[in-house]
């Protein structure tokens, strides 16, 4: 199950993170998860949220450049080695990870990892074959 993730281009200057989040707040949009990639010159704000289409249109109307990409939410065993084992399965299958970040599901206080794979469909197939839980859209929000 792939989840849509919004990415927003940010300049590297004070206040630039607040501005798009303020736009979403004013539109009464709640975030499920947030991650920020930063470089010397710019940042990429990554958001997972329920009303992503509405959020995208709100941001674009305010002049932000928004990109939609697919991420996969993986439910990892909350015990030592849980993540390492899962990454081992991916590595063995030659699945490339672009980036990842973690967040907690409020509902049942589980740790969920969001992965941006080069090939999400191939990754999902490998994970499902290995019996690793993939969080469905309905359980995310």
């Amino acid at each position: 199950m792939k989840l849509p993730q919004l990415s927003v281009f940010l300049e590297n200057r004070p206040g630039s993170l607040m501005e798009p989040l303020k736009v979403l707040a004013d539109a009464n949009i709640n975030l499920v998860s947030i991650s920020l990639a930063d470089t010397e010159q710019f940042g990429i704000l990554r958001l997972v949220l329920k009303d992503w289409e509405f959020a995208k249109s709100v941001l674009e109307k305010d002049g932000w450049v928004v990109n939609v990409s697919d991420v996969v939410a993986v439910d990892v065993d909350d015990q030592p080695g849980g993540l390492a084992q899962m990454l081992g399965i991916l590595a063995e299958a030659g699945i490339n990870i672009e980036y990842m970040y973690a967040f907690a599901l409020r509902r049942n206080v589980r740790a969920v990892l969001l992965f941006r794979f080069e090939d999400p469909d191939a990754a999902i197939e490998v994970l499902q074959k290995a019996g690793i839980g993939i969080v469905q859209e309905a359980d995310m929000y």
Binding site: S7, Q41, F42, I44, R46, V65, V66, N67, E98
Partner: peptide, 18 residues
């Protein structure tokens, strides 16, 4: 100015554009 056409969620892709 970054345009939607070249913008990506990946840092690497944006660095390549630059």
């Amino acid at each position: 100015e970054v345009t939607p056409e070249v913008f990506s969620d990946k840092v690497r892709a944006l660095e390549e554009v630059r």
